[in-house]
Simulated assay, not measured.
Amino acid sequence: MYFLYTIIASLAVFFILKWLKKRRYCTDLRRLDGKTILITGGNSGIGKETAIALAMRGARVIIACRDSDKAEKAVREIKLKSHSLNVLYMELDLANLSSVRDFCKSFLQREKKLDILVNNAGMPGVLEWTDNNFSMCFGVNHLGHFLLTNLLLPRLKECAPSRVITLTCSSYKYQKLDFQDLNYNQLPFFTYCRSKLANIYFSQEVARITEGKGVTSYAVHPGKRSFVQSGWTCHYSILFRMLVQVIMWMFFVPCEIGAQTVIYCAVSDEAAKHSGGYFIDCRPATLRPFARDAAVAKKLWEASERLVNLA
């Protein structure tokens, strides 16, 4: 009898894990020949899988990250897996606003097109500070991408129809923004949640200010019932990484699956009808009411302009 219970329990665990890992795939086979795509943090995780998929569709893919050695290795792997030579790397450190400005200046000089911007790079909840004295989560996840998008927005408008895709997380629902302390950096998880909520407001405001100008904007959560096996654990100790890797192997979905909704928002005509929307599993999803507040989104945009000295 004990043996039978063991088998039943094992089967139950197996099917639960299978259910947790079940995901939609992007079935839209649209080609992207002639398109130029910029992906921040495209050297690993979801960003790299997105780069592979979009390069396979014929796009010119530029991955932007700060570690040149990792980037060059990733470019070789992306080229090999996508069978495309039209993949390159540009240096960008989102934790340094001067680096963001230098990157945009160089990009606009070198690249005459930008059809899709994927704001993928992100930091987990770490109690660290950027070079400009912002909390690492808020500075990288929101402010760095905020400045980057604004400086590249004229090129996106020139290449319309174009798209801005910003990765967020369902953990946004556990916090609200405090405009008296946007630079909150006390409890790591709450810091991360606030930065992901800021990503959602940012995506909505991009959609609002570009309405009628050919630019659409999407906020993407790459998982639904579970999270994605990305490389965020590299910011923690070896022991913590080993523990989390086991948990991720059991319950989290592979980055290839996590990238599907990003790919969907990059190519789908149906997605284009929902500019400013929030997407999970290749379809629009409903946000909590407080995350749909247009007044808060505008207030955050104006505050971010001041923080990054954007005239």
Results as ranks from 00 to 15, higher is better:
E205C: 07
E205A: 06
V206N: 06
V206I: 15
R208C: 09
R208I: 12
I209D: 10
I209E: 09
T210Q: 08
E211P: 03
G212H: 09
K213E: 15
G214P: 08
T216L: 05
T216K: 11
S217G: 10
S217H: 06
Y218K: 09
Y218I: 11
Y218R: 10
Y218W: 12
Y218S: 07
A219Q: 07
A219Y: 04
A219I: 09
V220I: 14
H221K: 07
G223E: 12
G223F: 13
K224E: 14
K224H: 15
F227I: 10
V228Y: 04
Q229K: 11
S230L: 04
S230Q: 07
G231E: 15
W232E: 08
T233A: 11
C234L: 12
C234F: 13
C234P: 00
Y236W: 13
Y236I: 04
S237T: 14
S237W: 08
S237Y: 09
S237R: 10
I238L: 12
I238M: 11
L239N: 08
L239T: 12
F240W: 13
R241T: 12
R241W: 08
M242N: 06
L243H: 06
L243P: 00
V244Q: 03
Q245P: 03
Q245F: 06
Q245H: 09
V246I: 14
V246Q: 10
I247W: 06
M248Y: 02
M248V: 02
F252P: 00
V253P: 01
V253H: 02
V253I: 15
P254E: 02
P254C: 02
C255M: 04
C255S: 06
E256I: 09
G258R: 02
G258P: 01
G258A: 03
Q260R: 03
Q260A: 04
T261M: 03
V262R: 00
V262L: 02
I263W: 00
Y264W: 12
C265A: 04
A266I: 04
D269S: 15
